[in-house]
Simulated assay, not measured.
Amino acid sequence: MSKYSIKEFIEATEVEEQKDEYFQLETPRILEVNLKEMVWAKLGSMVSYTGDIKFERERLLEHGTSRMFKKAFTSEGGTLMKATGEGQLHLADKGKRVTILELNDDIIAVNSNDLLAFEPSIEWDIKMMRRVAGMMSNGLFYVVLQGKGLVAITSHYEPLTLKVQENLPVMTDPTTTVAWSGNLEPNIRTDINYRTFLGRGSGESFQMEFEGNGFVIVQSAEE
């Protein structure tokens, strides 16, 4: 249907009645958080809210000096904001598709650009793939999350999950890699030679290589 009356448009797009789920998808690209206390979310991801909610940018020393130094050297270290209070909060990130994952004592690593929100019960830390430093944005930063609770990640269009098996490694483009199972330690494969510097390379000069048993999630557009 391409044309709506005002009434029809409101009925088709209005917010659903509040449910008990802490995280739920209001649309495929908008996350609704039924906030009762606190949630961590990507800085700048708030679309709208109702109720009494306050927002505070994550402070450098909020999680100790170790994370402070990681965040001081990069603008891509997973900058977060803390939303506290009660109400309905809607989050989104540049129209990217939202996926809700439930961790049950699991560990998952997420590219810092693709982490939208997570429950305060989740433990997390920032990591950097140092071998990528100097090749892209001073390195590839990602966030390792573990414990019990909900995590919301984003992807350009529908995500694709690839199984990683023994003797069958998976290679991905770092700019399209969204997340991977926390037991995997990605390596960097490089294919840089004089043709790369002359601008005659394939454009895929380095890749992430995943070995072992687990999964990796990719998206169809570069970050």
Results as ranks from 00 to 15, higher is better:
residue 85 G to I: 07
residue 127 K to G: 10
residue 114 D to N: 07
residue 144 V to Y: 00
residue 201 G to D: 05
residue 47 V to C: 07
residue 157 Y to W: 10
residue 103 L to I: 06
residue 165 Q to T: 14
residue 32 E to T: 14
residue 115 L to C: 01
residue 69 F to Q: 11
residue 190 T to M: 11
residue 111 N to H: 10
residue 20 D to Y: 11
residue 113 N to Y: 10
residue 194 Y to R: 13
residue 47 V to M: 08
residue 83 A to E: 08
residue 87 G to Y: 08
residue 134 G to C: 02
residue 26 E to Q: 13
residue 33 V to H: 02
residue 185 E to G: 10
residue 47 V to P: 07
residue 171 M to V: 09
residue 70 K to T: 05
residue 98 V to N: 02
residue 92 A to R: 00
residue 5 S to F: 04
residue 142 Y to K: 10
residue 170 V to W: 02
residue 18 Q to M: 08
residue 131 R to T: 06
residue 33 V to W: 00
residue 192 I to D: 09
residue 188 I to D: 13
residue 51 G to P: 09
residue 9 F to C: 00
residue 6 I to L: 13
residue 203 G to T: 04
residue 193 N to L: 06
residue 60 L to M: 13
residue 65 T to F: 15
residue 62 E to M: 07
residue 26 E to H: 00
residue 176 T to R: 15
residue 66 S to H: 09
residue 125 D to E: 15
residue 66 S to V: 11
residue 50 T to R: 09
residue 25 L to W: 08
residue 142 Y to A: 07
residue 100 I to C: 10
residue 219 Q to A: 10
residue 92 A to N: 06
residue 154 T to D: 09
residue 80 L to M: 15
residue 78 G to L: 01
residue 16 E to H: 11
residue 45 S to L: 03
residue 192 I to V: 14
residue 108 I to L: 03
residue 211 E to V: 14
residue 201 G to I: 08
residue 162 L to V: 05
residue 222 E to Q: 11
residue 20 D to I: 14
residue 144 V to R: 04
residue 174 P to D: 12
residue 27 T to Y: 12
residue 196 T to Y: 01
residue 100 I to A: 12
residue 27 T to N: 04
residue 149 G to S: 03
residue 121 S to F: 09
residue 124 W to K: 01
residue 61 L to M: 15
residue 24 Q to C: 12
residue 122 I to R: 01
residue 27 T to P: 03
residue 81 M to L: 09
residue 2 S to N: 13
residue 28 P to R: 02
residue 20 D to C: 14
residue 22 Y to T: 10
residue 134 G to D: 07
residue 92 A to L: 01
residue 98 V to K: 02
residue 113 N to C: 10
residue 206 F to G: 05
residue 106 D to I: 01
residue 127 K to S: 15
residue 79 T to M: 14
residue 75 S to W: 04
residue 13 T to W: 04
residue 133 A to D: 13
residue 88 Q to N: 03
residue 156 H to C: 13
residue 208 M to L: 12
residue 127 K to Q: 14
residue 111 N to W: 13
residue 147 G to T: 02
residue 206 F to E: 10
residue 123 E to L: 03
residue 115 L to N: 06
residue 82 K to W: 14
residue 202 S to P: 02
residue 1 M to T: 05
residue 96 K to H: 06
residue 220 S to I: 12
residue 43 L to R: 15
residue 197 F to V: 07
residue 200 R to L: 13
residue 220 S to D: 08
residue 17 E to L: 11
residue 29 R to V: 05
residue 170 V to M: 11
residue 2 S to F: 09
residue 156 H to E: 06
residue 116 L to D: 08
residue 64 G to K: 00
residue 179 A to K: 06
residue 80 L to K: 14
residue 85 G to K: 04
residue 214 G to W: 03
residue 98 V to L: 03
residue 165 Q to K: 11
residue 115 L to Y: 06
residue 144 V to S: 06
residue 64 G to A: 11
